[in-house]
Every structure is written in C-alpha cells, then in structure tokens.
C-alpha cells in the first residue's frame, strides 16, 4: 500500500471518515504520520475554540477581578480560583462524572461526549488562567499611561478601550502566548483521562499511544507527535508574534528593536 492511499484512508480517520479499521500489523511510518496528524485535528479543534471563547471570558473575568464592586469581584475571583487551583486532569474526571450524573436525570446528555464536555472544561480552564495573566497586567500598567489618559479627559469605555486594554494586552502578551501553548498541549489530556474515545476517534496523543502499544516502540510515534506539536507551537508563536508586533508598534524605535529581539528570543 502506497503512502498516498494511506493518506486517503486515514487522513480524516479521527473525525470518522475513511477506513474504519486502524492498522494493526506491519505498521508503516507513513501510517503513523498520517493517523497522528489526523488526530491533531481534534487538538486544533479543542485548542482554537477554547482559546477564542476563553479570551473574551478571560477579559471579562480579569476586569471583574479588578473591579471595586464586590458582586463582580467575588464571583470572578471564585471562578478563577476554582479552575486555576485544581489540576485539569482532575477537572476532566470530575466534569465527566458530573455530566454523567446530569445525563442520568436527562439533562444535557450530549455533554458526556469529549467534543462538547471536554471543550467546555477547556474553555473555563483557559479563561481562568488567562484572566489571571490579564489581571496581573492590569496591575502592572504604568501609572503614567493612566494619568495621561485622565489628562486627555478619557473616561469609562474610551479610557479602557484606548489605553487600559491595549496596555494590558501588550504587557501580558508573552505570558498569554505561553498560556496558548499550554492550552494546545493540554488538549492532549482529553482522551487520556475521563472522557472515553468513541470508535477509536481520538486526538494525536491517543493515536501515538495506540502505535506505541502496537509496535511496542515509543521511539517512533512520540517523536512524530513531538514534531507535529513543535510545528503547531511555532504556528501559535508566529500568530501571537504578529499580534505582539501590532501591540508594540507605537513604541519608540529603540525600544521597538528590543521588542524584535524579544520575539526572536522567545522563538
């Protein structure tokens, strides 16, 4: 079987298209590359959606935690604490059991699937972590920036949108890049804990461990997985780097050069 037919058979296997039976014997490197890559679809699905939804939730939570109003601050603090204070692994387990209990009483039965239930946990989790990063940045905004905004007569939404928010993002961006990478990596936990894989439709790590088990050789599938994730990480860093450049474009040239250097070093 040529590699092209393998790709045709298995490239979309993780979402249920193509050949149903996974390769069981005489496993080729091509099959490993294709299936692990196919599983990556789920990692990207979990990562991108959780990041997008989580970002807005995180901004709201960070502002809530920074607020002087107790009924905004307390719930935000509680939410952030709950999800940052406990391991994702255990959250997955716990959520799965909770969703099962809900299913038993006929409430939101679809949440027991990884695609919905685990995604929800990931959204909440990344929102909590990012909110803490954003909150830290809100605290670290140079006093001069805010005083300048006051001097220009900016208030309320305008002050937030034009001064506080961009500064918050600029200051938090390296840490937030880290969080995005962590989130991408955390998606590999989904099928490894709590949520079961249906019809062998899993993520990249699921297939990597499948091959490690089948071939009894971890030295091929895991490096392949690592390669895919390094690629994914580089893409994340690249995208975030573009945003970072935009966030820093107002700085004087001397400092901007420094920013460029920073980007190189992060990579």
């Amino acid at each position: 079987m040529s590699c092209l037919t393998t790709i045709q058979d298995y490239a979309l296997r993780s979402i249920g298209f193509g050949k149903r039976l996974l390769p069981a014997s005489d496993i080729t490197v091509c099959e490993q590359f294709t299936l692990i890559g196919s599983g990556l679809i789920w990692n990207i699905y979990f990562g991108v959606i959780a990041l997008l939804v989580g970002f807005f939730l995180a901004c709201a939570l960070a502002l809530g935690k920074n607020s002087h109003v107790a009924w905004l601050r307390r719930p935000s603090e509680g939410f952030i604490f709950l999800f940052r204070g406990s391991p994702l692994f255990i959250q997955f387990f716990f959520a799965y059991f909770a969703f099962l209990a809900l299913k038993k009483v006929g409430f939101v039965p679809w949440l027991t699937s990884a695609q919905a239930g685990a995604l929800l946990v990931l959204v909440f989790n990344t929102a909590a972590y990012s909110a803490e990063i954003f909150y830290g940045a809100l605290q670290a905004i140079p006093k001069g920036d805010v005083e300048a905004a006051d001097a220009y007569g900016f208030t309320g939404w305008k002050k937030f949108r034009r001064v506080v928010w961009p500064s918050m993002l600029r200051l938090s961006w390296p840490a937030y890049t880290n969080e995005a990478i962590f989130l991408m990596h955390a998606t590999t936990l989904v099928f490894f804990s709590g949520f079961p894989a249906w019809q062998q439709k899993g993520d990249a790590l699921y297939y990597a461990s499948y091959f490690a088990d089948k071939t009894f050789n971890p030295f091929v599938p895991y490096p392949i997985l690592a390669g895919y994730f390094i690629l994914l990480t580089l893409i994340v860093i690249g995208c975030f780097g573009i945003v970072n450049q935009r966030l820093n474009r107002h700085l004087p040239t001397g400092q901007r050069q420094k920013m460029k250097l920073r980007l190189n070093l992060i990579r």
Binding site: R20, L21, L22, A24, L100, K103, K104, T112, F192, P196, A197, W198, Q199, Q200
Partner: peptide
C-alpha cells in the same frame, strides 16, 4: 478492544477494567 474494533462495532475504550464496568452502569 481489538476484537470489537475488528468487527466494525461501536467501541468505546477505557484505561482501566473498572471504568468499563462503570460505563455500562452509567449508560455510556
């Protein structure tokens, strides 16, 4: 697990034997 997959039936896998039993009890 290999057997069920080979039959083309709907397989759902768990890491420990205990969890497979719990899955049937829970209706998964």
């Amino acid at each position: 697990a290999a057997f069920v997959a080979a039959q083309g039936w709907t397989l759902v896998e768990f890491a420990t034997p205990e969890e497979t039993i719990a899955a049937v009890r829970n209706g998964e």
